[in-house]
Every structure is written in structure tokens, then in C-alpha cells.
Amino acid sequence: MSAVKTVTDATFEDEVLKSDKPVLVDFWADWCGPCKQMAPVLDKFAEEHGEKIQVVKINTDQNPETPRAYDVLALPTFKVYKGGEVVKDIRGARPKRKLEEDLAEFL
């Protein structure tokens, strides 16, 4: 079972905006090749760092309201939410090491 949780437009507020720890949100779609490449990277990242930062994913095709509300225009896009606000924005696929560097302040 993956350490990455799936959220929807309906659960985004409770799972992400009201979380008491930082949340890394993966905005993805089934047709996005780089998104699929990132799935195992995010699984491993979540297994190793889940106690400090929660990792969730939201399918942008099935849940269009949330990506629209947060100006997600390209996939994959990763946003870190803390206290209900976006505090970090990352676009594009990357290796786990680079993702850890980008998110070092939350680890």
C-alpha cells in the first residue's frame, strides 16, 4: 500500500488545508507521462519523510476545481501547503534527491 494518500475536491480542505503538518500535493493526470514517472519517487519520499510532511495526490481530470483554484497550469505540479496556504511551488518531474533538496526546509 502506498504512503501517498489520494484526495479529491471534496476532501481537499480537510485533508490539506486543515492539516497540522505541511502537506505536499501532487497534481497529476493519467495521461501525463512525467506524472507516472514521479509516482514511485513520491511513494518512496512519503515512506521516508511521512512523519514530517504528508504526501497526497489529486487527479486533475477527475477533480478540476482544486487545480483551477490554485492556478495549476502544467503537470506534474507539486505544491506544499502549510497552515492552509501555499508555501512552495514546484513544477516538473525530478529525481528523489532533487525533490528532497527542494523540500529540505520541511524535512
Rank of each mutant, 00 (worst) to 15 (best):
V55R: 08
V87F: 12
A104N: 08
P76E: 01
W31I: 06
K36N: 11
I90V: 11
V80E: 01
S2W: 02
V25K: 09
S2V: 05
G50F: 13
L42E: 12
L75D: 09
V23S: 07
A69H: 13
P34W: 03
M1F: 08
E47Y: 08
A3L: 03
E101G: 01
E13W: 07
P76R: 01
D30A: 14
G50R: 04
D102I: 12
L42I: 10
K79Y: 11
H49Y: 15
V25C: 08
T11P: 07
K52P: 03
F12R: 06
E48K: 14
E15K: 08
E13P: 01
I53M: 13
K82I: 10
I58A: 06
A39E: 13
V41E: 06
V80Y: 01
F106W: 07
N59F: 14
P34N: 02
D61T: 15
Q62N: 13
L73N: 07
A74E: 15
G33T: 14
C32Y: 05
A46M: 00
F106Y: 13
V80F: 04
L73I: 07
K98T: 11
Y81T: 07
K44D: 00
S2N: 01
K5H: 09
A69G: 07
R94D: 05
T6C: 00
T77I: 12
E13M: 11
P64N: 11
K98D: 09
G33N: 12
A74S: 15
I58P: 10
F78W: 12
G84E: 04
M1T: 06
V4S: 02
W31A: 10
N63I: 01
L42V: 09
G84T: 04
E100I: 06
R91Q: 06
A104G: 06
V4H: 03
L17P: 06
L73K: 11
K5Y: 04
A39V: 04
E48T: 12
K98Y: 11
L107E: 14
A104Y: 05
V72G: 00
G33V: 15
C35Q: 13
L24N: 04
N59Y: 14
L107I: 09
D14W: 02
M38P: 10
C35M: 14
M1K: 06
K82F: 14
S19H: 05
E13G: 05
E13R: 13
D14R: 04
E48Y: 10
W28A: 06
A10N: 14
L73W: 12
F27K: 11
K52D: 15
T6S: 06
G84A: 08
E101L: 07
V86F: 15
F78H: 05
P34C: 01
T66F: 00
K52M: 02
E47A: 06
G83Y: 03
V4G: 01
V41L: 13
Q54R: 08
D102K: 15
K79T: 02
K57V: 08
L75Q: 04
V7F: 08
R68P: 02
E65G: 01
S2E: 02
V25R: 12
N63G: 02
L99Q: 00
D20K: 03
D9R: 13
T6D: 05
D9E: 10
E48D: 14
K82Q: 15
F12M: 04
W31E: 10
D26M: 11
H49N: 15
E47W: 10
G92P: 08
V80C: 02
Y70K: 03
G50I: 09
